[in-house]
Computed example of a mutant assay.
Amino acid sequence: MAVKTIWPITHSCGHHTERDLSGRAADRRAGFAEWLAKQECTDCWRAAKEGDEQDKAAWLETKRAEEQAESEAWSEQYRMPPLEGTERAVAWGVRCRHQVLAAAYTALVLEGETDEREWEAIEEAARFVTRAGWWIDQRSSEPGDLAELLQAASEADRPTENPHF
Rank of each mutant, 00 (worst) to 15 (best):
P81A: 02
A126V: 02
A69P: 01
E18F: 01
G144V: 06
E76C: 09
W45G: 05
L83K: 03
M80G: 03
R88Q: 09
D20V: 05
T114I: 14
P159G: 09
R29V: 09
M1P: 14
W45Y: 02
E116M: 12
E87R: 12
C41G: 07
E123T: 06
Q138L: 11
V129R: 04
A33Y: 06
N162V: 14
A126N: 12
V100D: 05
G144F: 10
T160L: 14
T42W: 01
E76R: 13
V94S: 08
E113H: 04
E118G: 13
G51A: 14
W134P: 00
Q77W: 06
A33W: 07
K38T: 15
E53H: 06
R29Q: 12
T86A: 13
G31M: 02
A58I: 06
P81S: 00
I136V: 10
T42S: 15
L110N: 03
T106H: 10
R64I: 12
V100R: 01
E116Y: 13
T114W: 15
A58D: 04
A58M: 14
A156L: 10
D27G: 08
A153H: 11
Q77S: 11
W45N: 06
P81C: 04
E76K: 15
Q138S: 11
R79H: 08
R64Q: 10
F128Y: 09
W92I: 09
E124Q: 14
M80E: 07
R95I: 11
H98Y: 01
F128V: 01
E76M: 02
T114H: 13
R95Q: 05
E84K: 12
A2S: 15
P81Y: 00
D157K: 08
T130H: 03
A73V: 08
G144Y: 07
Q151H: 11
A65Y: 00
A125Q: 08
V90P: 01
E72Y: 03
W35E: 12
A126K: 00
D43M: 08
L36N: 00
P163W: 15
A48F: 00
A102W: 04
D145I: 05
E155K: 07
H16F: 03
R64A: 11
E40R: 10
R97W: 10
E155M: 03
K63H: 13
T114Y: 09
R19Q: 04
T160V: 07
S141C: 09
L83P: 01
A65D: 15
K49N: 11
K4Y: 09
L149C: 03
A57E: 15
W35V: 01
D157I: 12
R158I: 07
E120G: 00
R95V: 08
L60S: 02
R28Y: 03
A102R: 15
G85W: 07
Y78F: 15
E142P: 03
G51H: 04
Q99E: 06
G144H: 02
E155N: 09
S22C: 01
L150Y: 03
T86I: 11
A156F: 04
R139I: 09
D27R: 01
L146I: 05
C96K: 14
L101H: 05
W135Q: 04
